[in-house]
Design a protein around this nucleic acid. Structure first.
Ligand code: MN
Ligand code: MN
Ligand code: MN
Ligand code: MN
Lengths: 217, 217
DNA sequence: ATATAAATTTAGATTTGTCTAAAATTAATA
DNA sequence: TATTAATTTTAGACAAATCTAAATTTATAT
């Protein structure tokens, strides 16, 4: 139905939208998708012709419902494949994204629904991001970032904000993976770095920078 | 490394080669890949520049070792994905090929090796075709077509020659699927149609046309 | 051997997606 | 407000893969 490239543009625009009707800028798309602004303008015209987005010259773009649907289905496929790679093939959470970038473009509704069933209808991907349903419904996460949690409250690591490979590798190294039970036991006033207790046993220290990029519930 | 299109050409040429050094013709490639002869000539030049095949004008092409390697790895990926779709996602053997045509182009050696492991290192795909190893080694099947089997000999359905969807659907409908134990109990001289005994219980009739396209061991 | 047919290649276009450089528009600043 | 800066668009080109129509080469048949 739609090309890899078209799906990638729609996904990028979807992620860059703040739903304030503000219009996603050409430059931000170019940066996100690693291409040049001129190329973005060209593609935008094509997507506009196909009624996937609304485009006003120099004013940025907004996805139509049709465009959002395609973007969300692509994200759904991406995240379901990530679960497969992590749960079944035992890829690390820092490895799954790159491969899912390819798999998300496989065209077969039946495939993704059967895969979803095979995985037991997962609700979140290996990074804690929610998996939209078959009809695009999004149950939003009510996670908070770890640097806002008060001391002595038990929480569970449920997601990350920074999805970069080095960050995910670092967390894995210090045993901070999805589902980890933890408690903030000390907040240093000076730099807001934290002392955590993992599983009620091991104590570790993390910087505020790291804490800000961890989501818990 | 190589584009979808390049991999598809190499796979087609590999399958059309009889290893008699005879050179695969432009037309046969065009037919196989559903394109026009002129397009094939263009692509052949490109693949020749990349040392994936040897090309002599008007004389057809022969894959180099490098070209064969790419073709075999693509076939390996195709067949491993077919096993996954059939065994894990419960797709029918007539449904897997089309989706595997897409999945075979996913680029990640690690992915295919982990998938292979996850599936328990299968040796054959859902159609009985052998799966080449990581280093391209091919253990050749010693199957014979059912129309050459003598009466009252127990055999196992181990593959098919015709891979078309209607043929595979038909076999499934009459319970002739991979692994089925059967015995030829009657060969009609007139049209060489057969009476089979399935699992030592059920009797069915098949035409010679069908028998010729079934492989057993 | 010559004529005809079939297969193959070339020439010239087209589509998709990209790019650079230049022009146009909008935003920022003095 | 006038000038500069940043952003965006246009113009023109290019690579990949494809096509049609015409030219060339090889195969087949008289
Ligand atoms: Mn991802
Ligand atoms: Mn993810
Ligand atoms: Mn197949
Ligand atoms: Mn197969």
């Amino acid at each position: 139905m739609y090309s890899f490239t078209e799906e990638n543009y729609l996904k990028a625009i979807y992620k860059l939208s703040d739903n304030n009707g503000s219009g996603v800028s050409t430059n931000s798309i170019a940066e996100n998708i690693q291409t040049k602004a001129a190329s973005v303008t060209d593609m935008i015209k094509k997507l506009s012709d196909k009624k996937l987005l609304k485009y006003e010259k120099y004013k940025g773009v907004n996805l139509t419902q049709k465009g959002k649907d395609v973007a969300i289905q692509t994200i759904r496929k991406h995240r379901i494949w990530e679960v497969f790679l992590h749960e079944k093939l035992k890829f690390g959470w820092e490895e799954v994204h790159e491969i899912a970038e390819q798999l998300e473009h496989i065209q077969s509704e039946l495939l993704i629904n059967k895969l979803d069933e095979f995985l037991g209808y997962p609700t979140h991907d290996p990074h804690g991001d929610p998996i939209p349903g078959e009809n695009g419904e999004f149950h939003n996460n009510a996670f908070v970032s770890l640097d806002t949690v008060e001391a002595n409250k038990k929480v569970i690591l449920s997601g990350v904000i920074n999805h970069s490979v080095p960050f995910l590798q670092h967390l894995k190294k210090i045993d901070l993976t999805l589902g980890q039970k933890l408690m903030v036991i000390e907040i240093n006033e000076y730099d807001r770095s934290l002392k955590l207790l993992l599983n009620g046993k091991i104590e570790i220290f993390i910087s505020n920078e790291v804490a800000k990029n961890i989501l818990v519930k």
